[in-house]
Amino acid sequence: MSCSDYRIRISEALDSRLTDAEAASVQAHLRSCSACSRFDAEQRRLALLLQKADPDREPSARIWGQIERRIQAQSQPIRPPRWSPSRLWDLFRPPQWGYAMAGLLLAAALSVTVFQSNNSAELEGMLAELDAYRPEVRRNPWLPDPQQENPFLEINHDRNPFGEFRSEK
């Protein structure tokens, strides 16, 4: 560790943050480093100076009166939070209700998945059977029959105004 690392530790020591091992390591360094030892002494002196020169002061008693007046003027009572995760959780108390509910939801989700996968396997089997019998029949029943002509694409040349225009020309 460098001297600047030790100085951060010295600063921490002033705020009583070091473990016994860390404090012992700082003490060992201070015995061998006069610069850090001087820094330690200055910082201890500074801490004492600040404590003596700027102790806590009592706030004026009139502050509360002013707060009270502002609260009354606002006349807005404190409302508990309308919604929060912890309040939502409260709905499921006692906790075992919540666990039971979660278990039920999980079971329902699993059974739907299994049912759907079974259904799709059965459907695939039927389609394979159908393909073997008559492959051309297999198509998506929700799409228009590709073998039928699309009435929207059919061009009636007799009624095509552009065709008539061209023929007049």
Binding site: P59, S60, I63, Q66, I67, I71, Q76, I78, P80, P81
Partner: peptide, 24 residues
């Protein structure tokens, strides 16, 4: 110290207004 009186007052007034929003 003079500002501190006003600031203390403002802080607790705000705390009163916003206390309902404190979730924890």
């Amino acid at each position: 110290a003079n500002d501190a009186e006003d600031l203390t007052q403002d802080t607790f007034f705000k705390v009163h207004s916003e206390l309902g929003k404190l979730r924890e």
